[in-house]
Design a protein around this nucleic acid. Structure first.
Lengths: 191, 191
DNA sequence: ACCTTTCTTGAACTACTGGTCTAAAACGTG
DNA sequence: CACGTTTTAGACCAGTAGTTCAAGAAAGGT
């Protein structure tokens, strides 16, 4: 029944995500999206209704990818401090390894759109809360394992780490590795 | 000699800054700038050459205003910890008091433009370094006053605080006061 | 009073925006 | 192998982007 898609939705989504990540929502035109994905504007709108909806899907894809990575990193063997340090350093390394500094799509979107768009703001908030949750879970495990003090409030400390991470990704837009590593060291020295 | 300006450059700059702060560089059109400043597009281009140059001037104005405020706050009476806490809380309170969440113009610009524009990136970097300098100076004073340990590396800790601040202003786009205050508390509890 | 200079303004300009539509082509199905 | 459905590439649209410009207006110098 009907002609099938000639493109893989996930591949298109992934390429569109790269474009949005590089240029922001407002900075990415339908023409650029067509160019980046390799399919025509018409097909893009047929498949994803609007630029807004395509962006939302890209944002969700980004978050899913981050989630997978983050969980992997935090479940690695090692102490809580080692794990969290490795995770933060990994993010910084990834940011710096790219030819263009792009920051974090979630953070960038918070800055670009959250103030004007309650819907997006809520989605972003949800993603940030989830990230905080990963840190929280790792800290709680640390308390069970005995390498994190029971006096530490896991939620508060997870929020603190999420904030540090948000900061790092802004700082990575303009700073080099030594400064960023030093910030991570100082952060880790606090527990 | 020649017809004099009918407008005050500083007033126009300040209004343009508000517009850029609210909508970002790319999100602010010449028409909006004309509307916001109250002078015609032509006059704007006559006085400021281009949107880019106008923006640069706005960015510098913003930084100068922040500098004045920051210095005032950090020179207040009280311990280092009290001073820095008050400064961070002040920023959060200001962010949340506004009708629209706008974050920090310097941070927002880092995210929006630093990756694509080396010139802007350098300017932003300079402003961030200056902010770090204020923290550093306050910590050094604290070490002289005796309320901060001599073991603490003032530069590293200042970078750490600048990073926390950068994070807070992104987090303030989507989070409410209690979370932000808790992050500040956790940060302050580390020295 | 004129000339020069600098300012102001609104219109004009080109290129491109986000988004829609259409005609043709491509398929799975019966 | 024709059917109806769906995809596709590109034309198309009104609107806006950032910028320039011609024409007039307000001042000082002569």
């Amino acid at each position: 029944m009907g002609r099938p898609r000639t493109f893989d939705d996930d591949v298109v989504l992934s390429r569109a995500m790269e474009a949005f990540w590089t240029n922001g929502y407002g900075g990415t035109s339908p023409a650029q999206l067509a160019e980046a994905t390799g399919i025509a504007k018409g097909s893009l709108y047929n498949a994803f209704a609007s630029k807004r909806e395509l962006f939302t899907k890209c944002l969700e894809l980004y978050h899913r990818q981050v989630a997978e990575l983050a969980k992997g990193l935090l479940e690695h063997p090692g102490t809580t401090r080692e794990c969290i340090g490795a995770a933060l350093r990994f993010v910084v390394d990834s940011d710096l390894a790219q030819p263009l500094r792009r920051g974090c799509l979630v953070g960038n979107t918070a800055v670009e759109l959250a103030g004007h768009d309650a819907d997006i703001a809520q989605k972003i908030r949800g993603m940030q809360d989830e990230s905080t949750g990963w840190f929280e879970a790792r800290i709680q495990r640390g308390q069970r394992d005995g390498d994190v003090s029971r006096d530490l409030d896991p939620r508060a400390y997870a929020e603190y780490l999420a904030n540090t991470l948000a900061g790092l990704r802004v700082m990575a837009m303009t700073h080099e590795a030594p400064v960023l590593y030093r910030i991570i060291e100082t952060t880790l020295s606090t527990f």
